[in-house]
Design a protein around this nucleic acid. Sequence first.
DNA 1: ATGAAAGCGCTAACAG
DNA 2: CTGTTAGCGCTTTCAT
Lengths: 331, 331
Amino acid sequence: MQDVATLAGVTKQTVSNVVTGRVAVRPDTATRVRAAIAELGYKPNLVARSLATGTTMTVGLIVPTVASPFYSEIVEEVENVLDEHGYHLVLGTTRADGDRAKRQLAGLSSRLVDALLIAGDRDLADPLALLPDPRFPIALCAWETQIPDSLPVVTIDYEHAGFLAGEHLRGLGHQRVAAVVELPTHERRLSGLRSAFARHRLRIGDDMVFAPTEATPAGGFAAAQAALAADPSLTAIFASHDLLALGVLEAVKESGRSVPGDVSVIGFDDTAPVGLTHPALTAVAIPSREMAQQATNLLLRALAEGTLPVNSAQLLRTSLVIRDSTGPARH
Amino acid sequence: MQDVATLAGVTKQTVSNVVTGRVAVRPDTATRVRAAIAELGYKPNLVARSLATGTTMTVGLIVPTVASPFYSEIVEEVENVLDEHGYHLVLGTTRADGDRAKRQLAGLSSRLVDALLIAGDRDLADPLALLPDPRFPIALCAWETQIPDSLPVVTIDYEHAGFLAGEHLRGLGHQRVAAVVELPTHERRLSGLRSAFARHRLRIGDDMVFAPTEATPAGGFAAAQAALAADPSLTAIFASHDLLALGVLEAVKESGRSVPGDVSVIGFDDTAPVGLTHPALTAVAIPSREMAQQATNLLLRALAEGTLPVNSAQLLRTSLVIRDSTGPARH
DNA sequence: ATGAAAGCGCTAACAG
DNA sequence: CTGTTAGCGCTTTCAT
């Protein structure tokens, strides 16, 4: 920067003014400075700027994994919004590892980022406790378990979402249903499902709840096979997220049953891939992109105003997307 | 930091020594310092450290998108390796937008990150030209078009990979085949396919090449429908990546044809989701995770040694994963 | 509109 | 093993 200044015959300060554009500079001076910058190939050192301004123009995002359509959509959307506002994204994945989550949290909050967005509570329930600085801007997104009421959150009512799925199946006359549910993560989706049935004095016993060993289509496939073996006369299967639902669909078809003729299948999330299965999957749609946008904007707004994000719980609406994988119960 | 020092009765420097652990400190002094740190809740300012050391412990990764299984696997793997080495990841997506790519490149190379990894050349062919500083560590990964020979790259021989697919189909006796190919991105995969057929004096004319309007299953679905309409007697369809292949599979089945009885389908990439289609998809496997690992390690090694990454082109091997979607040509 | 001085919070290099 | 002195590259006052 000093080199640029001497070449242009000004001081560092004037160079700074030209670069940042925060202070008016006489046009001809500015031109001279710009020429010097081009000639020397000068690029401002962002780290030094950060130290001086106390702001990094960077937001951290912590997700359980990025290799699932649900979270990759969130990552993509967050990055989009950040980019629009000139912010960079530091991404941390926790990979079902509490220690790793803790490290990520600690690292990022050490002023490496200006704010932190945490999507999905899978591995963070505890680490969140050790929030270092209460003045550090944090927002939660897609939070499913107990929401710490000290932090702003943008999420949905997961229990209600499960309820929607249950009402739909009930309305179609299903009585013998199995649930393929990732536990304890998707506890609430299950209890929503159950309460929809409970309204009609129907129970979904624990023996009809199957937890997959992994959160993949293969996991859903195996769990669905177990469900069909446990009750060959069941007429519907609820899957607690899309990836599982894909596997469930395959397992049902492989067993020689038709969907939805013999067995209805309902999914959860409604990410892009599921629209193209055969039959197309009925699912409770979670507005993941909207959640990501809202949460990111929440943080960005706080940063712009130099305040903490408003501490509120914002619940987005879910809706049922009825496609072809659910139909009336067979008798 | 000064507060910690006075509370512990030492200087800032000693606090620094305790925190970084780079210099030996007498145990009792260290204990006193640690107590002071705990009492004051001190956390080192990473930005200040970066300015002083000239290193940010951060690596940038630029990808076209993260909402595709291929790239999300790469992101995940890169983050994994970085985390193991105590590095953070700054993620930039270009989203088929050359300007955005240019901005990302410029932003990240301004010393915000210590090194840069660029995966996929979709939107970067040109922007790469304006690499500011030749001494900035950069590596390329999964690079498909002309490789700039000034930069190290870890990729595969995409033409050979296409060739493998072609040989497989040829070996099964297929003669009338269509190709659903994202162009110009996957040009080489197509030309590999063609040269495998050319060896047997067979041509795949341009009229049998179908470019999907979008890189999704839906895009593949439409393109495959067009292909089947153009030549109802075709016996095989090549899809230039998995997402397209999923759509192709559905289109073929929907047309009333069986896979692979009537039409064989072969994919490309072999990402996780495709193992569970029905029938399971035969595909040319691209070792995306290995590429990501190698490229990341390349950069990390260079950073550790304070040198530039060795400028070489490392080609990983591809292999054909034969599953159930390909079979002998029908006559 | 531009210049001069001070300092962001930390680590490097050396001295003791 | 600990203290002292500089300085990383930039932005912020405040003068001029």
